[in-house]
């Protein structure tokens, strides 16, 4: 049995018939072919799958596509506007905050949500707020630097 799910993803309205057990991340990756959002664990801990639903960060592996019915979803693919990178994307590149790049989409989406809630975060706040995102490459040093730089850029 399938159900029809409609949501707005990166500004585009999309409708698909899916099994009710379809997770939002599967909807994005498999039904929409948007593979920027990744899956790195099965226990909702790694954060590679973080997207924004109605403006706040969630783990798209721990929400059914059906629960996002009618929602506005933003993924890493939707951050750059008119060919211009989001300041947080720019900060990640400038500060070498990524190596293999696998955790990066989720990390950037979490970082943007973090800064929306804490426009001027301390290093300690950044480290604590990234609790839901694992990175195995960078040792977090440059991610923390990038988030602080990104926050500054977002403050303008």
């Amino acid at each position: 049995m399938t159900i029809s799910v409609t949501m707005t993803v990166n500004g585009q309205s999309v409708t698909r018939d899916v099994e009710p057990r379809t997770l939002l991340v599967q909807f994005l990756r498999e039904n929409l072919g948007m593979t920027g959002t990744h899956v790195g664990c099965d226990t909702s801990q790694c954060g590679a799958c973080v997207v924004h639903v109605n403006g706040t960060s969630v783990k798209s592996c721990t929400i059914l596509a059906a629960q996002a019915q009618g929602a506005k979803v933003t993924t890493v693919e939707g951050l750059a506007q008119d060919g211009k990178l989001h300041p947080m994307q720019e900060a990640f590149r400038e500060n070498h905050a990524l190596q293999c790049g696998f955790c990066t989409p989720g990390m950037i989406m979490s970082a943007i949500d973090l800064v929306q809630r804490n426009p001027n975060p301390s290093e300690e706040t950044v480290r604590h707020e990234l609790e839901g995102n694992l990175c195995r490459c960078t040792g977090y040093h440059n991610i923390v630097k990038a988030v602080m730089a990104g926050a500054q850029a977002m403050r303008g």
Partner: peptide
């Protein structure tokens, strides 16, 4: 030098095996 490969990763356009 800032990394040439970063653009595709920060924009979600990398191609990992499971993306294929």
């Amino acid at each position: 030098v800032r990394r040439k490969e970063d653009f595709r990763f920060i924009t979600g356009q990398g191609h990992y095996t499971d993306d294929i």
